[in-house]
């Protein structure tokens, strides 16, 4: 079973979840551009029913950091 956060990224970026891990970032994932970043925020907020602040969003530069931000909001990911 694929990790639920990884799955959100894979769906939005339209890539195989197997190529993603917590170190994935716009630097090593070609599909992760600014447009995708916008779609990712919407998808994460919808999937985990949270609201992210602009500062939190700016910190989410890797999947691992996104996970951390969500955990800080008590989302079990």
């Amino acid at each position: 079973m694929v990790d639920s956060l990884i799955q959100v990224f894979a769906d939005v970026l339209e890539i195989d979840p197997a190529v993603l891990n917590d170190d994935s970032s716009p630097d090593n994932v070609q599909e992760w551009d600014s447009l995708s970043a916008m779609k990712l925020v919407a998808a994460i907020e919808e999937k985990f029913n949270v609201r992210l602040s602009t500062r939190e969003i700016m910190k989410m530069s890797t999947i691992g950091r996104a996970r951390k931000a969500l955990q800080n909001k008590n989302v079990p990911v």
Binding site: S34, L35, A37, M38, V41, E46, S53, I57, M58
Partner: peptide, 13 residues
């Protein structure tokens, strides 16, 4: 307004 500031996208889903 968050998305407007970050992405020039003004609206909610």
């Amino acid at each position: 307004s968050r998305k407007w500031l970050l992405y020039r996208q003004p609206y909610t889903e």
